[in-house]
Amino acid sequence: MHFGETLVFYLVIGLGVAVAACLSDVRTIGLGRDHDAEQHRRARLAFVALSAVLFWPLYLPLLLSSPVAPVAAPAHVAAAPQDEMAEAIAQVELELDAALSSLDGWAEDVLVSEKDRIGELRLALLAQACRIREMDSLLARAKTAGGVADFSGGASPLAAAEPRACDRRQQSERARAQNMARLEDVRRRAHADLLGTLAWIRELVSMIHLAKFTGAPASRAEELVAQIAAAVEGISAADWREESHVAQTPRPLRPAVSDVERERARGEAAAFDTAHHQTA
């Protein structure tokens, strides 16, 4: 094949890549909002089109890689009001950030592997708080509606007025009261789970600081960060348990992270400290 023919093939492929690169660029960067932005966008597109025809091998990785979408929090999480739970989550996030940034120069590679899961954990905490708020507002609405004064099984005013004529109504009211009492119970448990998880994260954060300043190996930090990241699974499991609990028998109050896990982590920390002091 001669140079001219090769050039034709090269440019034909380049044209195809240029069209694809322009379409991808428009999708990624978007349209300009004002005159200057529009002009800038056009200049950029013109350059991309021209350079992609000539240097299409450099644009192939750009086209073949998956476009990166900005990680956006769910709408219900983004609009979270500032209340006690939001403050507690913010406090834990600050402490967690401080602990993770203290890993620099000691075990910073842990962050690379667990970054996504820790991001998921943050979102899960916010989502859990949002869920509790929804239950709060539902319960408050039910209470102010006046139909049910007490969800713990007390007689409603409607039932008290006409006891015989309203048997069916009474049954429904009682069932409703029981459901609302269960919902209150679910809310209480979800709240306790959330606080338990937050406390567990703070405990692990303190263990990270302790491990760092007692000269623990980087593998210890890896374990602790992995346990923090694993808390997201505890929250998910708690959600599922609560949903299934509504239709099943009640269970004793339990935090999202099991006591066994906590004891194991504490035991490991104590064992490490003992071994460390002995070696020191």
Binding site: E84, A88, L94, E95, D97, A98, L195, R202, E203, S206
Partner: peptide, 20 residues
């Protein structure tokens, strides 16, 4: 915070964490 009621041991200064 509500967490303080749970007798948590660790208490980091907000400024430190904000700095981080």
């Amino acid at each position: 915070s509500v967490l303080d009621r749970d007798r948590l041991v660790l208490s980091l200064a907000d400024s430190d964490a904000a700095g981080a």
